[in-house]
Design a protein around this nucleic acid. Structure first.
Lengths: 186, 186, 186, 186
DNA sequence: CATGAATGAGGTTTCATTCAT
DNA sequence: AATGAATGAAACCTCATTCAT
């Protein structure tokens, strides 16, 4: 039982790496199997298809992301601190998974189920952030949360493709974004 | 001579529609050919491979997007108006191409040439916006331009997948984004 | 383990027949698969490409030919007998594979690896014969061995395309060739 | 009229080069057209198909080869001189066309018409040589002529692939072959 | 549970040939 | 006569999935 859990997780870990670094179409089941240290057939004991594996892998990542974002934010007291924790969490996530640029934030069209999950995830994330804003009394919390998250998303490609970006840059991006959000550009 | 031009454009138009609605991998050359009203082989008279066609199609879109963005901004006088024109152009582009959600703003990894073009495009776009900001005397124009464009990008998925969004919403998104950028969230 | 060996051999057998009777370019992978009683994809489990299969098939034939030629020659005592055994082996090989005229003795240009193997094979064969001649004290063994083998090769097209040629003719060709080689034309 | 003749010849010349250096299957009509300085379509005004062009090209080569061989032999007086002239002509032909190794002496199976022509050519050539031998009173002239020509053919691959072989080697090969034929190996 | 050999549908690309100009 | 744009059949190869062991 625990063994099963381990197998499933091992496969999801491998899937994260392979899907993440190659993209859905260029990822091969055999490579995921090899990376998981098992055989191709075994994957099908745990996941009915490549697509299902892809979705399961993303689901796990989504849950993990949201859970962590919430944890971090809950530790903070002031609104500014909360925004800052969201920003840091978001950007560090990009930073730590920068070797797997395809693992997040985009999905193949022609995979409606995955699109739904992705929408749901964005929804959940935006709601999480919107709630923080509502608690602060901010109007139009939904629009504001989307704008805030979108600014963070904008750093994704830079973080992925510019190897010179380091943790100091990440901190700066977070500070800048929170400042712009709270006070505007001037 | 004109004929050639026409054929090439016809193919690029069809490529835009098919790549845009299916994504690179799920797009089939035969479908592009049919949509262009020609035969499969003819595509290869104008483009050496599927990948080259994809890149050429994107290049055309990039140039078109940048040219229009500049046109619109140049017609404006105040800084706020310029930002607003950028925002409207950006969001209306999403709106008018919402049937082709894969035609823009993302590219398959494993296609380094395309990634380079995409980076270049973002660079050009951000520079265009940064220049407007520099003219206004805004500090850290690069960071600000990225943040501004990122907020606009954030509406992409909504515009694509929510069929209830209409031109009034677009205008509202633009107004909101410019306001947030200039004055902050309060 | 034995199964694998069998599959590989089955594929090589089928390749010998199809390449041999159609030539490299007119041979189709699907036909080789059908003849081997397997599916197209299975061939690619054992050989990475059509070209590799072609080369492997030829390699096997080369080794087989040389091994047999040596076996037969080693059983003989006198020089004349040895020459005669070489001639018979050579001509009977043509005779027994006459249904597969393209399987031997020629290779597509534009396939450098195959050309190398073919050269190597001719080299090995000529050396084998040259050695017999050296043991006899014949001068210019290399030139003589090439001339001898070339005369035998000359019967190839006759044997392949003239269905009236039978084993009696083969014996006669061998006798004639050895005689001409040893004593000249008078 | 003369113009036509020129076009046809130009195409045959180009075909000789391209078929000869690439082989039938790897030769492209477009390349032949370019080499002839005309357009693809024009070839089809003079030859109904690639196959027909290939056959016509070979036919011309065959006729040329035979005509020259006869010319050279007729100039000679003694039997040995005649054999020697045949040998030199044969080997120099290989030597001078060594850049076009596929232009002669082999044909794709699956092209019965071409196979027939090739047989006919060998027949004619062997008869030409056999006649010389008959005039000398040699018995079994047919067998002897085949053996003689086959020995010459044996140098083909060497001449084609060994760039160090020069005219001195050719002369030596001719001398050696005639000697072996007349006196045997000792 | 686990394996990995086998399958076969499906897509990109090539190129001889045609035909309107 | 000459062109070259257009055609479309055909073939190699890939890889998700199955299933006997």
């Amino acid at each position: 039982m625990l063994k099963d859990k381990d197998q499933r997780e091992k496969i999801l870990d491998a899937a994260f790496e392979v899907f993440g670094s190659k993209g859905y179409h260029d990822a091969k089941m055999i490579e995921i199997a090899k990376k998981a240290g098992i055989s191709k057939g075994t994957i099908y004991l745990y996941f009915p298809s490549k697509e299902d594996l892809y979705i399961a892998m993303n689901d796990r990542s989504f849950a993990y992301f949201l859970w962590n974002a919430k944890q971090e934010a809950d530790r903070c007291i002031t609104f500014r601190q909360k925004l800052y924790s969201i920003a840091r969490h978001h950007l560090y996530f990009f930073y730590h998974t920068r070797k797997y640029p395809d693992s997040f934030w985009q999905a193949p069209l022609q995979m409606p189920e995955m699109m739904n999950r992705l929408h749901q995830f964005f929804n959940d994330y935006h709601n999480l952030v919107a709630k923080l804003m509502e608690e602060e009394g901010l109007e139009e919390a939904t629009l504001h949360s989307k704008a805030f998250c979108s600014m963070l998303n904008g750093y994704r490609m830079d973080i992925i493709s510019n190897p010179e970006i380091d943790e100091k840059d990440i901190e700066m991006f977070a500070t800048f974004t929170v400042g712009l959000f709270l006070e505007g550009c001037y």
